[in-house]
């Protein structure tokens, strides 16, 4: 799920940036530092949408770096148990398959794949129904449901299932190729 929230961060700026463009430098550095990172609490920071407030800088002794408390708004992405996501399959093996929904990695173990889909090994390992009408392989797009998340300080890993109504392949690039 996506959220638009306000976050805070203490930014350290090198003295060489002190000048007319200090603020711009600070924002640029904030984006570079924060976007794409993940915190267990808020999820992945997708994009910074605005800087709300930059507090008074505090010069650090010895280094000359200045610490600015920055309040900014960001779009974050945090997967939840029970959430339905659309994801791209990145790898298939006999244990199941891995998929990505943006920054989130999801593993769907083989017992959470419908029983009528069998694993086929080969150059392009895949799960296929007996009539061959549905195939899950690398780059397939699937809709899955998160049934568990493991949230670490810097990483969120999810377990998903496609064994439920309206879940499974939503488009199959291999079928047309």
């Amino acid at each position: 799920m996506f959220f638009h929230i306000t976050l805070e961060r203490n930014m350290q700026l090198h003295p060489r940036h002190f000048g007319p463009h200090l603020r711009d430098k600070l924002v640029a550095k904030l984006m570079k530092d924060v976007e794409g990172t993940c915190s267990g609490r808020h999820g992945f920071v997708v994009a910074i949408t605005g800087v709300e407030d930059i507090g008074k800088g505090l010069i650090r002794e010895g280094t000359g770096f200045v610490t600015f408390p920055v309040k900014y708004q960001a779009v974050v992405f945090r997967p939840f148990k029970g959430e339905i996501l659309e994801a791209v399959v990145t790898m298939v093996n006999k244990m199941g398959f891995f998929a990505e929904a943006g920054p989130v990695q999801i593993f769907v173990s083989n017992h959470l794949i419908p029983d009528d889909m069998e694993f086929q090994s080969g150059d392009m390992p895949n799960y296929t129904t007996s009539d061959g009408s549905v195939k899950i392989q690398k780059d397939s797009e699937v809709r899955l449901k998160i049934i568990g998340t493991r949230v670490d300080a810097t990483e969120i890993f999810c377990i998903g299932t496609i064994k439920d109504d309206f879940l499974g392949v939503i488009n199959d690039p291999g079928a047309t190729a």
Binding site: I147, R150, T161
Partner: peptide, 22 residues
Amino acid sequence: NRNTIQEYICPNSSCGRRYSAF
């Protein structure tokens, strides 16, 4: 068997460690 997190186990009887799908 829905909504259950798969568990994996080391077949080595001397080891026998268990892991979860996470």
